[in-house]
Amino acid sequence: MSAPRHQPSDEPVYRESAPVVRVSALRGGHCRLRLGAPSIAASIRPGQFVNVGPPGDSTLLRRPFGVYQTLDRTDIELLFKVVGKGTAALAEVSPGDELDIIGPLGNGFDLSEDFAETAVLVAGGFGVAPLYALAQALREKGSQTYLFVGTEEDVPVETSDSSMQLSFVDPDVKITLTDFEELGAVARVASMRHRPGFFHGLASELLERFLHHAGSGCNARVYACGPWAMLKRTAGIAAEYNLTCEVLLEERMGCGIGACMSCAVRLKGENGEPVYARACVEGPVFDAAIVDWDAK
């Protein structure tokens, strides 16, 4: 909790009855959900999240979601995978239904500095969801963005074959995420299975190859979201190359606004003692250098 950006925000939180504008089922149980939420859409920043109330009485607690993108400054779009009761109910909503949502919540990615000419995004599976809004913001800042996604399942969003040749992977590694490619980002997908067009290995290995190839003068910033083991490897590689790395951590959450202390993330305290920070207000984005990676 040393860096100022890990202080809870005092920005207002809005509660909106958000009409479902569009819901689309995607491959592999993924779902894209567009909601009308003008107050949240106008103020949310990349890495912040919303807490979505259950459709009907399907669950008690709200469920936290990163925002894939904001549209027309009035709508937000969520991208998620059906993993339990809450997400299953959410995938069943229809246009015109209303969802009770609160946001923006938490601290987003640190976009206050404009030095990062290169940004490398690393995602595991649907961990890619909160990174698209980040990629949009990075483009506005003029950063060249790379995205490496690791998945053993279906890629959560639309893919296509990139025509761009990359120096750090074989030319047949060409599957890209269409949304990101259209932003001018370079994206590739990794899998531990042999799959045509995929990089055979881990997403973090793509990061390592990229950094190795770019050499020691590379002024890159690393951003990651996904499973703990992937984040831990990514944080380790960034540290080896002396690069700032921000990770978006997903934890089981209660209230979402800092009152209940449920979503604890173990950090390395200033005196070496561990401290628990709340993912919902001090996070969900943390400087990877202060996360206690041995906690899980």
Binding site: T59, L60, L61, G86, E251, R252, M253, G254, C260, M261, S262, C263, A264, V265, R266, P274, V275, Y276, A295
Partner: peptide, 10 residues
Amino acid sequence: LGNPPPRIAE
């Protein structure tokens, strides 16, 4: 410090 996570389940 509090207990190790996870700390909540519905």
